[in-house]
Design a binder for these strands. Structure first.
Lengths: 241, 241
DNA sequence: AAAGTGGTTTGATATATGTCAAAAATCGTG
DNA sequence: CACGATTTTTGACATATATCAAACCACTTT
């Protein structure tokens, strides 16, 4: 396994986690919450560019991101790479590995991160006993499918600037859901990584950023982004080609 | 709901279905198989261009395709469309709807089809009682995630001819898994639908077909395809740009 | 503070794919 | 079988994005 030794081990019950509303189903009974604490085991820390797992690793656990953010990527033998997502606190990562018991992509920390390991056997066992948890797990997997299909739409039928607008609006909305600013944030990923995610070359990403700035939709200075006109960005999407 | 009245209703136990090896987990006990037959209810027939479900429909059931094939598509309000997949016998369809209890895409029959309805409540109940079934359901969902991410790679970083090669090889392999010819088959979808799936215009798809033919990799006459050189098609993928 | 390194921006140019158009082939239907 | 409607093919041309290159900037290391 590619996990570094846990830098600090905190026994951290899910029931008292401040991210519970993102990770867990609502409406669990006290009894169910207590049961669920069987699950939460250890938190692990990662530094920028550490691997949480690698493609080919044996699958044992899903991971809940407690803080920080990751990218997931597929590396094709011929050198092609595709970033398949950027994940942040409260999101569950590793779902692709369930199908074959082998991780199908790499997960790489974009900054300092803390992650909760969720042993999958245990999760399945608990979800047999707690129907709400079962349903929740299904919803999380289904949500990932919907997300991926949204990206297929983006990659299959949107132009460069539309893709970047979708990307920025999505980031904005997820940050807001975490109580952070929807309009001012630091990008944790490079132009190259954004390009890989959006199916564009890094120069094209950079030009699109510059163009948005010249249109007064955003201010951007390298990785610092301020959205000036959310509605204007939205409007980019309606210009069908 | 958009389902037509079942044209014929056959009570058809999964345990005796010839597609069981595609739909069901291996190694179920006789007892478990018997339980599973609680699930299988009714088969429904569809004709070409019938909707199995539409985006926005209330979610109640997954569907197992018994015969025929479907496309799934997202229609964006601005008229953009994206075909997100082509599904054939033995495949399970509707997973995207679990996340919100509302179908997120349309499923349209590409030919005459027969479909088994799998009420999702029942499926969850059974999968709490049959751990192998639970695991199987998880694997099916995870497989869909992996599939979608493969398409992201295709859309994000492959050229037109590579995309078509991937498409043809994938079809070939799935047909072979169903005991059909890996090298001779009828396409059930139009150039436009293939293009939508691959993020290309129909003219580009048509040109790529013609080019493969001129290279003696395939014979293609409208919707009749014969693959002459499987290895040659594979080799298309290694020409990194 | 200087030097090095990697990331970013911008410009000039090339190219793959899109667009538009017309003809050919195929399919469905009376 | 013929008609119209639809799909497919092919060509000529347009364009969005990629490629190549250089300068610039920001961060790390010494």
């Amino acid at each position: 396994m590619s996990l570094p030794a846990p830098i600090y081990q905190l026994h951290s019950p899910c029931s008292s986690c401040n991210l519970a509303e993102l990770c867990l189903p609502a409406d669990l009974s006290a009894h169910e919450l207590r049961k669920l604490d069987e699950l939460s085991t250890v938190k692990r820390s990662f530094s920028r560019s550490d691997y949480l797992y690698r493609s080919g690793d044996k699958f044992r656990s899903l991971f809940a991101i407690h803080s920080g953010s990751f990218k997931t990527q597929i590396l094709h033998e011929d050198g092609r790479e595709q970033v398949t997502g950027f994940q942040m606190a409260g999101e569950i990562i590793g779902l692709d590995a369930i199908s074959t018991d082998i991780h199908a992509c790499d997960a790489v920390a974009l900054e300092s991160c803390v992650v909760c390991e969720l042993p999958f056997n245990k999760l399945e066992e608990l979800s047999r006993e707690i129907p709400l948890l079962q349903r929740h797990l299904h919803k999380i997997m289904s949500r990932e499918i919907v997300r991926d299909q949204g990206i297929m739409l983006l990659l299959g039928s949107m132009r460069a600037e539309e893709r970047l607008a979708v990307f920025l609006l999505n980031l904005s909305q997820r940050l807001a859901a975490r109580g952070l600013s929807a309009t001012q944030f630091q990008l944790r990923m490079s132009r190259h990584e954004i390009g890989s995610y959006l199916g564009l070359k890094l120069e094209t990403v950079s030009r699109a950023f510059s163009h948005f700035q010249s249109e007064r939709l955003i201010n951007v200075k390298v990785r610092t982004v301020e959205i000036l006109d959310l509605a204007g960005l939205q409007a980019c999407l309606n210009n069908t080609r």
